[in-house]
């Protein structure tokens, strides 16, 4: 690991003032320290922000819940309000990593975790995300873990977070503190970005902005929810494909749907068209199959990940069926 100075920020002001473009905020460190050991991230200063007092969960004025940016993933997933009203979020978070890592990981850090593309992790390989202009090793190389939606010629990596797939299905906004001390609210769909010609940028966050909260919308999928995670072993592994599904039902009809997929794009992939398609339909297997066809119709896989198209369809049908089947 390269040398860096360590700043334990006492408050938000100190964190923002200490920031320089070559620093990194330090949350739980579960992604950042790993990447620093691999020489992929090379900050000259770490500003510890996990101890800052953004650890509360409370009702917001939109009838939803606000969760602190520095709260750990496990405290968030196990909070009674989250479990009762946003079990889809809890389930997505609990599917991730392990108890130890969830105890360390902060909500802010989770949003900013970087891709698990093996070329990105290995500093001697070409990778446009790690080193712009060096080429993308995955496009013609080992791409079984890579994107089938929204990629570009410069990068085909996927975003690895499970929590973010849950948030995409639920609808949320992210609150950040700007270096000048003012606050900015970012719609969740605008938070992560597609790679385009700048794969080094994972999100639309500006340098120095500090994530302090996530605001959830009014709970709508508290009864019918499911987070399906398909992986190479049954625990402690990243998703090949995951699906967050939420349904609201009235009188035997779907009145609202939330559907997002992980493991398929540079950002959590929200199926807005499918969410609309499901509204007004009677939930049954054939409708779920039609939804899955619609969802995957624009998928463009690579040599190594053609399996993701069929797997994606089956996963959508299964997640929607499981969500529907829950007793309310």
């Amino acid at each position: 690991m390269r040398p860096f100075t360590y700043t334990g920020a006492k408050n938000k002001e100190q964190a923002l003032q200490s920031y320089s473009p070559t620093s990194h905020y330090l949350g739980g460190g579960t992604n950042l320290l790993d990447l620093m050991k691999e020489d992929v991230e090379r900050p000259d200063q770490l500003i510890e922000v996990a101890s800052l007092d953004y650890k509360k969960i409370f009702q917001n004025d939109k009838g939803g819940l606000t969760i602190g940016g520095m709260l750990s993933n496990s405290e968030t997933a196990n909070h009674p309000e989250v479990r009762k009203n946003y079990p889809l979020l809890s389930m997505s978070m609990l599917s991730a990593a392990t108890a130890q890592i969830r105890n360390m990981a902060t909500n802010g850090g989770n949003l900013l975790q970087r891709t698990r593309c093996p070329y990105f992790f290995e500093a001697s390989m070409p990778c446009n995300k790690r080193e712009p202009g060096s080429g993308c090793g995955a496009i013609k190389g080992m791409n079984s873990l890579h994107a089938i939606f929204g990629y570009s010629d410069s990068c085909i990596a996927v975003h690895p977070s499970d929590m973010c797939v849950g948030l995409a299905a639920l609808g949320a906004t992210v609150e950040v503190q700007k270096p000048d001390g003012s606050t900015r609210i970012i719609a969740f769909d605008d938070f992560h970005r597609l790679p385009g010609s700048q794969p080094e940028k994972d999100t639309n966050l500006m340098p120095g902005e500090l994530i302090t909260a996530i605001h959830l919308e009014r709970p709508e999928f508290s009864e019918h929810y499911y987070y399906l995670k398909i992986r190479e072993r049954s625990s402690y592994a990243f998703a090949l494909i995951s699906v967050a599904a939420g349904l609201q039902l009235k009188g035997g009809e779907i009145t609202k749907a939330g559907l997002a997929m992980g493991g398929v794009a540079h950002k959590p992939w929200k199926f807005k068209e499918v969410e609309k398609f499901l509204v007004g339909k009677k939930p049954d297997e054939s409708i779920f199959e039609a939804a899955a066809e619609l969802a995957m119709k624009d998928a463009k896989p690579f040599e190594g990940n053609t399996y993701k198209v069929e797997m994606g369809k089956k996963a959508i049908v299964r997640a929607l069926s499981q969500a529907y089947a829950r007793k309310s």
Binding site: E122, A123, S124, P126, G137
Partner: peptide
């Protein structure tokens, strides 16, 4: 692995100094 001529050379240089990342 998808490594062309120039990235091959770069890779071979890099790998001699470090061991492969645990994840990769």
């Amino acid at each position: 692995l998808g490594l062309n001529e120039s990235s091959r050379r770069k890779f071979l240089k890099g790998i001699s100094a470090t061991s492969l990342s645990v994840w990769a």
